[in-house]
Amino acid sequence: MATGDRRPALYGVMAEFDNPDAVIAATRRAYEEGYRKMDAYTPYPIEELSEALGYHRNRLPLVVLIGGLLGAIGGYWLLYWTSVIDYPINVGGRPYHSWPSFIPITFETTVLVAALSAVLGMLALNGLPMPNHPVFNTPNFELATRDRFFLCIEAADPRFDHDATANFLRSLNAREVTDVES
């Protein structure tokens, strides 16, 4: 009865592993099985995992490129507009548009805006800050920032079937398989 009540509010099924190789192997198997809506949670970055999850597109570099270009154009425009258009000062007949002396500041604004867009872009694409999330309901999940590795197959996956998915995860050498309430 308890499970019957819980099912609609289920976020997914979480498997807990105690080493990185196991979670990578499990993720590959789950991907082969046809699961797509899943995510792994690990204490440090593991490159193979995002590949195993079938995640290839990363738009962050584009965000940073656009940020950098905006910074460069904005910075140069600030210098050009103030020194040539808004308040030109004639210093010994030197050109108003003295571009070599505009380079340092243009460079700094490029780096500044690109760096800001790298950080803010990373947070925005990751949907952070998000103080709470269903996966935090998993028992032992506080160890995901210490020495445990987790794989969650989400209920939103079309192939998700509570019992079958849980059994499948159990077959992958998981220490523990638990339901995650949403």
Partner: peptide, 17 residues
């Protein structure tokens, strides 16, 4: 920590950043 949960996809963007 802003709700960091160690998601593999987050880690990938994090490493890129």
């Amino acid at each position: 920590a802003m709700g960091w949960r160690g998601s593999a996809i987050h880690w990938q963007r994090y490493e890129t950043a």
